[in-house]
């Protein structure tokens, strides 16, 4: 192939732009409505159980992805669980060095499948370990908006 190339890479142009959408508003959905209402109003987590498969899901789901049944059985779970795995962040999203490292963990809860990804707090990075018991630190009730950030972080139980 003998393309007649421009030659100098400096002559090759780039065009700069971004995605102009002002933002997205995601509805929480059938099960999500219930999950966030429970978090906001009662400070608890909500799970659901497929009675056919006898499998539970946290966060709650409206249907069972395994057998496709509709799920109508919802139940509350205390926001206290175990660190299943974790990672320690030392740089931010743009690669900048963080002043304080951030610990992010996947937390599972007693007796239900699934779990939550969230931050860990009130602990030193040296003390975090897989299997450790943690519990949620929530915003005060009147400041909760029904978002996952209503939980500030999880701390050692």
């Amino acid at each position: 192939m003998s393309w007649d190339k421009v030659g100098l890479p400096t002559k090759l142009r780039h065009w700069y732009g971004d995605m102009e959408v002002e933002g997205y508003l995601y509805t929480a959905g059938i099960a999500g409505e219930k999950f966030f209402k429970t978090l906001k109003e009662r400070g608890k987590l909500l799970a659901s159980r497929c009675m056919k498969c006898d499998v539970s899901y946290l966060p709650a789901r409206a249907y069972c992805p395994s057998c496709f049944s509709e799920i109508t059985e919802y139940f509350e779970v205390e926001p206290e669980g175990n660190v299943e795995t974790y990672t320690i962040l030392r740089v931010g999203v743009d690669g900048e060095k963080l002043e304080e490292p951030v610990i992010v963990a996947f937390i599972t809860f007693d007796g239900v499948n699934g779990g939550l990804i969230h931050r860990l707090g009130e602990m030193d990075e040296k003390d975090v370990e897989i299997g450790m018991r943690v519990k949620a630190v929530l915003k005060p009730t009147d400041e909760r908006r029904g978002e996952i950030t209503d939980i500030l972080y999880f701390k050692p139980a």
Partner: peptide, 16 residues
């Protein structure tokens, strides 16, 4: 309804 808001930080340099 309960919603989450997010704005993608998607900036591009398209090679001509």
């Amino acid at each position: 309804a309960f919603k989450v808001e997010d704005k993608p930080e998607a900036k591009y340099a398209w090679a001509a």
